[in-house]
């Protein structure tokens, strides 16, 4: 457990030692701030953060791969993976540490956005309903962490950050767009598998303020399985 924390903290700090970390946070806050100022903070409108959660959800598409692409790819490229893999740490702890560090960065990116509900609280009458706001944040975190676990797998498979970025982006897009794809022509079994992998209905429910335990379990379990997959991908490098 100590090793997980040590790796997570190094990873988290490293995001702030390179420009990418600051740029990602700045762009995320700039765009969500613009949405907040123009679409939410409008006199006469009901106090809701739904437009913010909608745009933040879509922003996860480029933001998360940008965070996760360097987790392992950079270590493979520079060779720093060798001292890591020859240290007395399990591969699973290494993956978990990297993922935890990236999740901490995601959290650090979301914390400043708490200013939006606080502002809404101060200026709107009646005050916004806290339920959908809490559900929205839980949704963003779960979505972000699931996407990060996809990114961790991609990054553990290649030394190219570009490839890891694109693979993560396309897998996320695929999971979001499944319902839009006509699945009627597919056999029933395939339709069920595609729907089980689909992200949008679950994220959509969260955005409406519905916190379904089934959805939470789905997100957490998927993230867990993907991290196991990332560990296997890392181990497979030893055998190549």
């Amino acid at each position: 457990m100590t090793a997980v924390l040590v790796i997570a903290l190094r990873e988290f700090r490293s995001f702030f030692r390179i420009p990418v970390g600051w740029i990602v946070i700045a762009l995320f806050l700039l765009l969500t701030g613009a949405v907040f100022a123009t679409a939410i903070l409008v006199p006469g409108q009901p106090a809701t953060l739904r437009p913010f959660f909608a745009i933040a959800g879509w922003l996860m598409l480029p933001v998360v791969p940008a965070i996760s692409m360097r987790l392992f790819s950079e270590e493979f490229r520079t060779g720093t993976i060798e001292p890591l893999l020859t240290s007395p740490i399990r591969d699973g702890s290494l993956v978990l540490g990297k993922f935890a560090g990236a999740s901490m960065f995601l959290l650090a990116m979301l914390v400043p956005t708490l200013a939006y509900p606080l502002t809404l609280w101060l200026v709107s009458d009646p005050s916004p309903d806290p339920g959908p706001i809490a559900a929205g944040y839980i949704s963003l975190l779960l979505l972000g962490m699931l996407a990060l676990s996809i990114g961790t797998v991609a990054s553990a498979c290649t030394s190219s950050q570009t490839l890891a970025f694109l693979a993560t982006l396309f897998v996320m897009l695929g999971m979001l767009l499944v319902p839009s794809i006509s699945t009627q022509s597919l056999p029933l079994g395939a339709q069920r598998i595609l729907n089980a992998l689909s992200l949008s209905p679950r994220a959509g429910d969260f955005a409406k303020g519905v916190v379904d335990t089934g959805h939470i379990v789905w997100f957490v379990a998927s993230t867990g399985w993907l991290l196991v997959l990332a560990t296997l991908a890392l181990q497979s490098r030893r055998w190549r």
Partner: peptide, 9 residues
């Protein structure tokens, strides 16, 4: 272990 060309952060 010191790997070739000492990779560091």
């Amino acid at each position: 272990y010191l790997p070739e060309s000492a990779p560091l952060y």
